[in-house]
Amino acid sequence: MIGMSIFIYTYYKSNTYKTVDRSLLDEYHFISNQFDGDSILDKIILQDPKDIVYIYKGNTVKYYTQNRYFSDKYPTNGKIENGFYWEKFNGYNFRTIYFSENEYDFRIMRNIDSEKEGLSHMVALLIMTDMLAIIPGFFISKFLSNKALKPIENSWNNQVKFVQDASHELRTPVSIIQSKLEYLLKSPSSTIESEAETVAVAMREARQLKKMISELLSLTKEESIVKINKEQFEIESVFKELSESYTEIAEYQNKVFSYSINTKSRYISTDRNKLIQLLRIFVDNAFKYTNEGDSIDVSIYDRGRDKVQIVISDTGIGISEKDQKHIFERFFRSDSVRATDIEGSGIGLSISQIIIKTIGGNIKVKSKLGEGTRFFIEIPKGKIAKKL
């Protein structure tokens, strides 16, 4: 902006004085054609009445035009080279052209105070314009830079928090495994049978550590995904796959697992693998936080013309209203759950949140402590082929 203002000022100034110089040169030629050294008393007609003319012969003024700038004292003949000059007399600014012709020296002057004043006003106007442009421009650029840097800053803070949380969560099983192994080293005469419980605890923590590492890798992988593999498939095929995976587990744990499909269309178009991964996270949690005799149900309904809603409900231990605000945060586990033997890392629902955003849906939860939990997953139906 400042560069543009400098260019405008320079261009305007140059054109202004070039116009004055051309006018003075034309005036000189016009006067030169009229002037006759033998008849110096003849009045010379000027193209521009504002011009001031002095004609010298040596140091003597032979002809001049009346003006208000030199009433008492005439400017002397400087006898300088032909050309244009800047001059200042009695506080006035002039642009002057000098030309020598035969024995006469021509001095044609024009007051340029108005031009200088115009240029000063232009400078003030350009400065004011620049200030008006720079100040909001500064705040706009600051706002935009902050806006552009905010995702980077958030990403960095999330990464730092992720590393801190992951380090904290991984430290616990590692510490337990280490303490159990150290205990075994201090008891070399012990048999496997006598230390079966110690080995079992170490193995359980090793499995938990392996699961946590797997989930961390999955979380990192999901965050890097920007493209999904959409395909059209039967809704029932996904629910059958879930049923095959969890029916036996339900029987073993003395729980009831069921599903129902309540949609007009048999088909949906989305990323099938991600949908199954998403549902497995919630069904796994449902099995984890239910007791014997409890039930887990997965149902799907139409939600308007363009969406479906999948509801995963259970009759388990439920989630307190306070904890519901934090369940999608990484590594979050309520105090009541941490105090139990229920295994978990607090990463699963964080992964689900990333997956649902990837496939363009949303998740809501309704739960009451001691009465069970319902998760509502809304996703777009996608474009379904007419032939189906």
Rank of each mutant, 00 (worst) to 15 (best):
F376H: 15
Q159H: 12
D36V: 01
K150E: 11
P49S: 13
E197N: 14
D105L: 00
K43N: 07
S32K: 12
Q253S: 04
K288I: 01
I312R: 05
M131E: 12
K150F: 05
E292L: 12
L144C: 05
D48T: 07
N93L: 07
I384H: 06
D314L: 03
N146P: 00
L185S: 10
K142M: 13
A148M: 12
E195I: 03
S320R: 08
T373Q: 02
L181P: 05
R107D: 00
I359F: 08
G137F: 08
Q34N: 02
K88G: 09
F84M: 10
H121S: 07
I377L: 15
E169T: 07
E378V: 14
L217I: 05
N291G: 11
I225Y: 14
G3S: 09
I327W: 00
P136A: 14
N291P: 00
L275G: 13
N229M: 09
D21F: 07
K383A: 02
Y252G: 01
I127V: 12
M131S: 15
F106R: 10
L369E: 06
R305K: 05
I379R: 01
S245Q: 12
E193V: 15
S114H: 10
A286E: 04
E236T: 13
I310P: 13
S320L: 09
T220W: 11
K180D: 12
S120Q: 08
P49F: 03
S299W: 00
K381R: 15
S334G: 14
R110E: 10
N362D: 15
Q34P: 11
E222G: 09
G316K: 14
A200G: 04
L275M: 14
F94C: 15
D341W: 07
D341I: 09
L275H: 09
L242P: 14
I310G: 14
I379C: 05
V163C: 06
Y252C: 01
I52W: 02
I140Y: 11
S145H: 08
Y9A: 07
L242I: 02
F375Q: 05
E234Y: 09
R280F: 04
S14E: 10
S32P: 10
A206I: 04
Y301V: 09
D302V: 09
K381C: 12
D297V: 13
N102R: 01
R171Y: 10
T290F: 01
T10M: 05
Y85C: 03
L217C: 11
F7M: 04
K274D: 01
T373L: 10
S141W: 02
G316L: 04
L170H: 09
